[in-house]
Design a binder for these strands. Sequence first.
DNA 1: GTAGGGTTAG
Length: 650
Amino acid sequence: MDISPVVGHRIHPYFITSHLPFSITKCSQSLPANSVTIKNNNNNTKSKYIPKTKDYNSISHQSRQSAMLDIQQSKDLQLALSRSGGVLKVQDLNIVMREFGKQNRLKDLSQLFEWMQQNVNLNFASYSSYMKLMGKSLHPNKALEIYNGIEDKLVKVHPSVCNSVLGCLIKSGKFENSFDMFRRMKQDGLVPDVVTYSTLLSGCAKVQDGYTKATELVQELKNNELKMDSVIYGTLISVCASCKRCKEAENYFNQMKSEGHVPNDFHYSSLLNAYSVDGNYEKAEEIYKEMKLAGLVPNKVVMTTLLKVYVRGRLFEKARELLTELEVLGYAEEEMPYCLLMDALSKAGTIDEAKLVFSEMKIKNVKTDGYAYSIMISAFIRNGLLEDANELASEFEAKYEKYDVVILNTMLCAYCRTGEIENVMKLMKKMDELSINPDRNTFHILIKYFVKEKLYMLAFKTLQDMHSRSQQLDEELCSTLMFQLGKTGAHAEAYTVYNMLRYSKKPMCKDLHEKVLYILIAGRLYKDAYVVFKDNARLISRPAMKRFSSSFMRFGNINLINDVMKAIHTSGYKIGEGLFSMAVTRYIDQPEKKDLLLQLLEWMTGQGYIVDPSTRNLILKNADLLGRQQTAEILSKQHVMSKLKSIKST
DNA sequence: GTAGGGTTAG
């Protein structure tokens, strides 16, 4: 098989870019250089609503209205701002921001916000609205930059500002960061409210062990004497559902009702989602009925979630009926329900049925964002239908220009499995162009592929890239790569891989130390080998220890010989006569190191080691070199010791 | 005259 733009001869030019294999995506733009906020003298947020001068007050309502319209309707926003922005108060500009948000004019929104940063004293509403309206489009670093740039301390700890920053972090998956941030905000004086807690709780739905964290947050909320409201309950039920805590979801649902809150669509769909975990359609149907009896009309999400319950319970007939119902109601214009059905069908082993749904969906012109494709591609890969997977990936590429990291990963996986390197590289370039950040999965797929193709150095560079982005490494893959690097002579790289694993948070497999020790010996990297041995001596087997120590005595740094001896002794192994003799020979070859030899002899004697006759002779022969008197002293101690030992043993 | 939070898919 020839897969070889990279294999065999040269690495494809694409890989010889500055930083392999992805270029570093620039994510934080800096603020304009002149972004100095114009200040008034009021530091109090409240006072900003009070007009400050007669002139300011006299600007008529009407002229402000027309200025706002001008800004909203102008083709050149910058121009309109310099023309009309001056007469507007911060709350007027906030209104315009919200208008832009409503119209999804995100670019204008950002431009307006930047202008406001430079020209107006922003209030808390400006910050929180901006971050909310930008939603997922606001890079978390940018949000933090904005937040850190807030000088007014009261604005900075305003709950709505804090909440929107936290929300932004959570939306972009930075749950841990949001938690740290929350701690710091509290230190700075934030008094969290229910919204803060529900914001943080919503992050719990996305992390492992989220339920435990959620429980802690609920406790904190209660300690702060805050009351759970309907939204908090909604969030909690959804957290339970995501964490597969069906019973707990039910409990919160009932608790909420008993406190007099009336459940709405959110509560019902989250509870249904909890029932979907084990496909408990009986309970689901019960609650669905209850909802209708309460006078609520199930919306798209509720019905789709019920469909999820059916497919999880493998009630495909019921699911199909419900899908038809959704279609009739116009609730199946997006791919979600089809995705649920296809995914479940393919996982139930009926991939042909899934294919049928997929083609049905295409005939009906259902909109797709790539979910359906990635489900089918993964299904093909799972079933070993690599050609089909590959074909579908190409089809998606040809038809759509919408990518995210998941669909890209799925496609990468398909191409990697069939060994289509040209396509793999095309996708990687695309990822770079679209500034889509590779995630742990991306790296994993690539490294695995490079290893399979024996492109170990490329795999290594990719691993380094992954590590530099603080992605958690996969130990098994690293271990394979380390071994292969060692085998192909890249000893230092193998050691780098070992160290990446060693200093990552997870405890590593015990064999790895010994494996890397052999690699380091083979690569004559004795000093590194010594470090590995010393730090893990108790996990190193006798044969490995012997190989290490004898290599070190012959070729390792002479200045470390005594340390190696001590390390062997400390780890519980006995220093053998052979090893000792090797060390002595090595020292005698380098007379300038005689002090070290004397130290060694002294120490060995102190530990009760006895010199074998031939080494003893060797020392005697070189007594001039070592200093007669010292040699005599040591050897006599040795003599006494050996006598004692022989007495003991008889 | 202000603000932030919860539901379904890969």
